[in-house]
Amino acid sequence: MMDIVYFEELFFTLAFIIYIIASLGFFVFLVSSKEKVGKFSVIASSIGFAIHTIAMILRIIESGRLPFSNQFEFANSFTWAIVLCYLVIHHKYKFTAVGGFVMPLAFLMMGYASMLPKTIKPLMPALQSRWLTIHVGTAIISYGSFAVAAGLSLMYLINERNKDKEKKSSHLPDAEVCDYLSYRVIAFGYLMLTLVIITGAIWAKKAWARYWGWDPKETWSLITWIIYSTYLHLRFNRGWKGKTAAWFSIIGFLCVIFTFIGVNVLLPGLHSYR
């Protein structure tokens, strides 16, 4: 058992370091436009992801369940999902620059995870449900997508600013592409978020007799959902694009982060069994 814990921590730290290197690499790529540096960063991200995955698998073996039950495990899985979503987008669209805006988010989230207590605790009774797996599984995918969307929106905003300066950097994909892609990624994340809320309600019904109880976490997930609903409606019906949409996407992601971290720290709720 001791060995597994040791290797898990080793791989976790290794992945963390590689993510930092990848982020720095992307930064150099953005500044210098050297194709090779960009390629190197993508490869580093992939290797980091593979090592991170091993660390996750070791933890799953160690605890005998999915790593979805305390703040450390959730932050860790969240990071994993951000990198996963990034790599999927990368392999589909091949926009190297996206990494420069997403990998820093991943390494920040992992940095947050590394500050949390890592002890493996058995699941408390209310968490012993297969709905937990689906609920948290969809949550990390949804949050990961919103992170990638926010990165794309940031990229769009920077692109827009550069446009005036006449030295439009060639390695950033077109502003329009960023704009559309972030919309599509948000649509996917929104669908996932809807599933998160639904599976959460089903689980709450089984554990606490009510499917919705206005617990701060529940309420904030609803608020996040309303924000993205507004985004989608304004975009679809009012043709909202560009700057406003990009800012909205970034605000939405801040809301996601608050739901994820802020609520736990500032607004204690009922997510415990007494």
């Binding site: 701060p216 309420t219 609803l222 608020i223 309303i226």
Partner: peptide, 10 residues
């Protein structure tokens, strides 16, 4: 509705 919900959590 979003603002009113936020107030309820604060």
């Amino acid at each position: 509705i979003a603002i009113y919900s936020i107030i309820g959590t604060v």
